[in-house]
Amino acid sequence: MTDAPEYADPQRYAELAGFDGGYRDLWWNQDFLELMAKRWGLHERAHVLDVGCGAGHWGLTLLDHMPTHARLTGVDAEPNFLELARARANARPHGPRCEFVTGRAEALPFADASFDVVTCQTVLIHVADAAAVIAEMRRVLRPGGILITCEPDNLAGNLALLGTSLPTSDEDTVEIIRFVQRCQKGKRTLGEGDERIGHQLPGLFAAAGLTQIRCHTNDRCMQLVPPYTDPSMRMAISQELAWARQGISIIAATEHDARRLHAAANGTPEQFEIGWSATHRWLTDFVEAVEANRFTAARGFVFYIASALR
């Protein structure tokens, strides 16, 4: 194992990000998206750019709420992700109206004022300079066009995820949050993004000269209640157990990356072992409770949706 992040391997990143299957579709309620599409006026828009499109989930989701002649362009730095996006688009009726190209969010390969919708989902948490990416998104947005970003505050979200039926002690809860906070500081130190970028979006939009800034929070809870017969519950359980069997939790990801980020924040090996052990106890308890059909949780997450006009 090298010091490089595990997500540097595109195939591994796709596994860690849940690109395969419908796990990411669990992030949204369709009636909520219909409401947001009305608020954003997507019925009047014709061309959407999905920045950092990955396997195409978010851009294709928005296209479902746009006119039948609307087009989608997805851009991502990883060609392997674009192949996944093309396959996903081609499996849908509007596949011919989709195009996916290689490019970086910091230097979008498009002319000024090319799109009337520019969007991204869970991208700004992974970039070194979110303001620079927003400036690029604004550049390629037409006057009167709308910019839409969906980004979390993962520190707050992790605290919410700890509110379950598990008997997690107060001491472990504190150690897990301290551990996660230190790892997130290490990520910022390494220039790999800010896991709390969601709550900064209004200020970043204002600084970029965008207007009519509006923020909302996602209304989705990925609730789990035995016997987990609901399709969305089965999908969530299947994905998270698959991660757990590799020692990966939705709170702290992989041990390799957690150790790397923790060290970048000047965390000591002793502090790492305390935090990782508490996180691993939580993960072990989660797996045992799910397999015994006794895990319950609302599992809300802190996901900000910000929009603004150019």
Rank of each mutant, 00 (worst) to 15 (best):
L16R: 11
Q30H: 06
A37R: 07
K38A: 15
G41A: 12
V51R: 02
W58P: 06
L62C: 12
T68W: 07
R71W: 06
L72D: 04
A77S: 14
E78Q: 07
P79N: 09
N80K: 14
L82E: 00
L82Q: 06
P96T: 03
E99P: 05
G103A: 07
A107I: 01
A130Y: 03
A132W: 06
R139I: 10
I148V: 15
T149Q: 07
C150W: 03
L161P: 02
G163V: 12
L166T: 08
P167G: 05
T168N: 14
T168A: 12
S169M: 08
D172K: 00
V174H: 09
I177F: 12
R178K: 13
R178Y: 09
R182K: 15
G191N: 01
E192D: 13
G193W: 00
G193Q: 04
E195N: 09
R196Q: 15
I197Y: 05
Q200P: 00
L201R: 00
P202I: 09
L204Y: 06
A206P: 03
L210I: 03
T217S: 09
T217L: 15
R220Y: 00
Q223L: 07
L224V: 08
P226Q: 06
P226N: 06
P226G: 03
D230K: 15
D230G: 10
D230V: 09
P231T: 03
M233P: 01
A236H: 10
S238Q: 11
A244I: 05
Q246M: 10
S249H: 08
T254H: 06
E255L: 10
A263Q: 11
A265Y: 03
G267E: 02
P269V: 03
W276H: 01
H280M: 15
L283G: 01
A289K: 02
E291T: 10
T296D: 03
A297F: 07
R299H: 12
A308V: 02
L309R: 14
R310A: 10
